[in-house]
């Protein structure tokens, strides 16, 4: 395994680390996108451990900062964030192709990184697969049932009476903010996922306990997205014990193992 540091991109405004396996790399390379505002090393250095593990498994990787994040600046051209992300990903794929000969790519994104991975996977034919960490999902009847049953199981009889009393009083709040998730409409995401699977992409969804505001059971994916959940290209995992950003080393190791195994199964060397 070896790593090299690069300033790259259409305006040489991006910074990233290419990781190479000891043996010649697979033709599929892995790009890791920023999680929120955290620099390319990822929350608690998650992306460093993950990319180095993938390198050891035989995959070339690039962890890099999108425009304006971490050590990357902007290209100075007027564009929307989505256009910027698409152009940055194109620059990143060109770099990994030049460095490692990769022709197809897997994207890994946590939180906002998952949203970016979704936008890229639906539009770029070079994307062979994507790992969405706390990506899109939508509350369902099953979600609400599980949510309230769990709450009930932790509530004392007196607490239950108080809660019922509050429920019977008129509320000034129109809805509970815990269910506000600023995601695109479900129909749009469903259509995108169908299209991705139709093009043969492999998709891994891992939801953490930190996503409990909108996701609380692996079955919810099928409740949300229907038949496509049974597509062989889809794998869904629910990692209830972990938090949203994998603050514990043990959880990061488990996540890394799960992602690496999925990569090996779907993109064998």
């Amino acid at each position: 395994m070896s790593e090299s540091a690069h300033r790259f991109g259409r305006a040489r405004h991006l910074v990233g680390i290419v990781g190479m396996p000891r043996t010649p790399a697979a033709t599929v390379g892995v790009l890791v996108l920023n999680a929120g505002l955290v620099q390319r090393i990822g929350p608690f250095r998650l992306h460093v451990g993950l990319t180095r593990h993938l390198n050891a498994c035989g995959y070339a990787t690039l962890r890099f900062d999108l425009s304006g994040l971490g050590d990357s600046s902007v290209d100075g051209k007027p564009s929307t964030r989505e256009e910027q992300v698409r152009a940055d990903a194109d620059d990143a794929m060109q770099l990994l192709a030049a460095q490692a000969g990769c022709t197809r790519f897997v994207l890994i994104g946590l939180c906002s990184g998952a949203a970016h991975a979704h936008a890229l996977a639906r539009s770029d034919p070079r994307i062979a697969g994507a790992v969405f960490l706390d990506g899109y999902a939508y509350p369902t009847a099953g979600f609400l049932l599980r949510h309230y049953l769990r709450k009930l199981s932790r509530t004392s009889p007196m607490g239950l009476l108080k809660a019922l009393s509050r429920r019977l009083r008129p509320s000034v709040r129109k809805h509970d903010p815990v269910f506000e998730v600023g995601f695109p409409p479900r129909a749009e995401v469903t259509a995108d996922l169908q299209d991705m699977l139709g093009r043969g992409q492999k998709l891994l969804f891992i939801y953490s306990g930190g996503a409990s505001g909108y996701f609380n059971d692996a079955r919810q994916f099928r409740e949300c997205f229907g038949a496509l959940a049974r597509d062989p290209g889809v794998e869904v995992q629910y990692f209830a014990a972990a938090d949203h950003t994998y603050v514990l080393g043990k959880d990061r190791a488990t996540l890394t193992e799960r992602v690496s195994r999925w990569t090996g199964r779907n993109f064998p060397l």
Partner: peptide
């Protein structure tokens, strides 16, 4: 942090409390 209900669904009593400091 290990008991933080805003972070974990269940307190992480399975973890040695002083083995890590906020992710490291």
């Amino acid at each position: 942090l290990l008991l933080d209900g805003n972070r974990f669904l269940q307190p992480r009593r399975d973890m040695e409390p002083h083995a890590e400091w906020v992710g490291f």
